[in-house]
Amino acid sequence: MKKLIFLILLMTLFSRLFLTEAYAQQLSLEITPSLIEIIAKPGKSITQAFEISNKSDRDLYLTANIYPFSAQGNEGRVNLDLNSQECWQMPCGEVFSLENSGIELNETFLIKSGENQQLVLRVNMPEIIMDDGYFTFLVSQSSEGDFLNTSGIVGMGAIGTNILATISEDGVNRSKMRIDEFSTDKVVVDIFNQLLFKGVVSNQGSSFGKIDGEIHINNILSKNKVILYLRQDNVLTNGRKQIACRTDTEEIETKDCSFSSVLPGIFSAKLFLNGEEEESEMTRFVVFPVKIFIAFLVGGFFAYFLRKKRNLNKLVA
């Protein structure tokens, strides 16, 4: 009997150690690539393959569709218009189509659990040069008529990828980047502390483009120079984007445009776009050992106070 109880306890312990999460009816989708950029001549066709992976625990019925979007804010977010079926002032079905046999836009297709499906999207560029088109290729779960026996919610999922398209006869990029804002979060920063550079770039050209810029930081006293390289973000036509900086490591991560110095000094920071002096903005800041200075100040005050008190005591004595 003791052995049996011990065995049951042991089995319970082992099963708890190796428990895996179990979900009721989950959805898990993956799509690549997550962004495509097209520059093509009027009247030409482009094809792009997307790979959809169904990593769910069940087969999924999906529908692929195209919706236009506009920029939202300064951080690369998308304002999706699900009520519009117009692409470049014509029905999206005239611009976009799927090359797959048996799968059409706005029609349901099946991806089995654990399988991939390649969708080949054809883009027919308009015959005349028009403004840029920005679209989201959205793959949505179709309603499967799941009915609950009590009150409840049927969840559904969709995953998308963005398409930035420019119609151009000569392939020349016609973006025009301007610096709208450039500043630091502090004017005086302590040594070793991080100072953040904040900036917004706008695109006043007629096609989307990438930010190409650098921040040159100079110590006026020592002539040392540090260069921060901006991440090459897309900025849509008439859009704005906050600047971010690249790291030099193998990880694809972005970092704030930040700076710190172990030496005090007066610094100037100049943001250049496209390496041009005409497109630049400057700001200044001071690096000062604030904490050390305060520590000396407080220490000095106490030392003076103690000395004064000692002198007083001597006098009294």
Binding site: E21, Y23, A24, Q25, Q26, L27, S28, L29, E30, I31, T32, S34, S53, K55, D146, L148, G152, I153, V154, G155, M156, G157, I159, T161
Partner: peptide, 11 residues
């Protein structure tokens, strides 16, 4: 890759 998971669809 860009991936999205919803753990429970029937709530």
């Amino acid at each position: 890759p860009f991936s999205f998971t919803i753990t429970d669809l029937e709530l």
